[in-house]
Amino acid sequence: MLTRQVIRTAVEAALEEDAPNGDITCETTIPAEVHGTARLVSRQEGVMSGIAVFEAAFAAQNPTIRVLATIKDGERFEAGQTLAEVEGSVRDLLTAERVALNFAQRMCGIATMTAAFVKAADEAVETTDYRKPRTYARTRIVDTRKTTPGLRPFEKYAVTCGGGHNHRYGLSDAVMVKDNHLAALAEQGIDMAGAIRHIREQVGHTTHIEVEVDRLEQIKAALEGGADTIMLDNFSLEDTRKGVDLIAGNAIVEASGNMTLERIPQVAATGVDVISVGALTHSVSSIDLGLDWN
């Protein structure tokens, strides 16, 4: 969760990393009493995410710095648009500038990429072979745990700003049984259905259980075990449709593996409930933002 404490801890650590012994350039060139204003300006179009983090970076450097945002998280912006105005000590503004921009640029990049994937999934409705998902009103685009270490709260929040949804936050939040887990259980003589039932006996009744399958033949056992979600990993489009039919609404259907913008409409048209996309966080490009001085 992207709480105020999480934001404060992260920006303070980033400022400490960037200026552990102060900003010697500002301290030797700019008098302490000089005040100024600047504008956060977009160099390209995108989706906003991280305004609160941008503000917190300046506040952590100097609580008297004033930030006036002209956009909210989740809103789209155009190239050349002013997204916020900052006012305060020029020394402190310049010292915190890079940290504030680093967070905002990456978070906007994730939100913007997510929005593109969400739009692509929605375009499936226009295809001739579209099938509506059974669990949700439309196919959801979700993230994965392929996040930057230490920045997961920021990156997962940015996904939601782009209209996506979050997969489990971490290993403590839900059960996800993958091939390696199944292989370990198989050595103990426990098959997939038995493994799911074994897990169900040990966890609380609110704990969600997801099982990854890599071939159609495994779906029957996943259903017999009572999986809440069945992930179709690297399935072809034809097998994805067959998988959706076999599951028949008895579990949430998630498609995963090699998800590109070009493939998303086709995958969404198969009727899957969820498409997980690791690229949202592990292969994103930051949005070009700059601080222009008045």
Score class of each variant (00 low, 15 high):
V244N: 01
D92N: 05
L291I: 00
I71H: 10
F58P: 03
S49G: 07
S286V: 07
E201P: 13
V211K: 09
D143S: 08
M48Y: 10
V211C: 06
T114N: 05
A124K: 02
R152Q: 03
K146P: 02
L289G: 01
C161H: 03
T160R: 05
R241Q: 13
A104M: 12
N294V: 11
G162L: 07
Q105P: 09
L83R: 08
Y169F: 11
V244D: 08
K178V: 09
A96C: 05
M48F: 13
M113P: 07
L185H: 04
I190R: 07
R263W: 14
V284R: 06
C108D: 06
V6T: 02
D173R: 09
L171R: 15
A111N: 00
D173A: 11
E75W: 08
R200P: 08
F77W: 11
T70P: 13
A38F: 05
N258K: 15
I230F: 10
I209M: 09
R43P: 06
L291V: 04
R131P: 04
F103M: 10
Q81W: 06
T270W: 04
A19V: 14
D23H: 00
Y130K: 09
L261Y: 03
G88E: 10
L246F: 13
R76W: 13
N250M: 15
V125P: 08
V244E: 04
T112K: 05
R138W: 10
A158Y: 02
D288T: 04
H167S: 03
V284I: 11
S236C: 11
M107Q: 04
Q81Y: 11
E78V: 13
R215H: 15
R43S: 09
I7H: 01
L237M: 06
K156A: 00
E85W: 06
D273V: 06
L182G: 07
A84R: 00
T114K: 02
G194I: 09
E17H: 00
T240M: 08
N166S: 05
T147C: 07
A193G: 13
G162F: 09
D273G: 11
L289Q: 02
A10E: 02
G226L: 03
R39S: 08
Q218F: 14
M1D: 13
L94S: 01
R134A: 14
E217Y: 12
P153S: 01
A251E: 09
H165N: 12
R106L: 09
L237G: 09
A269T: 01
A195E: 02
L15I: 07
T9S: 15
I209F: 07
T9R: 11
A13C: 07
V125H: 13
F117P: 03
V277S: 02
A57C: 11
K132T: 05
E224P: 08
V284L: 11
T281K: 04
A255N: 09
A193R: 06
K178N: 00
V274P: 04
L83V: 07
P149D: 10
V99A: 04
V274M: 08
A104V: 00
I247C: 05
E12I: 13
L246M: 12
V277M: 00
V41Q: 12
A251T: 08
Y169Q: 12
D214E: 14
R91A: 04
I252V: 14
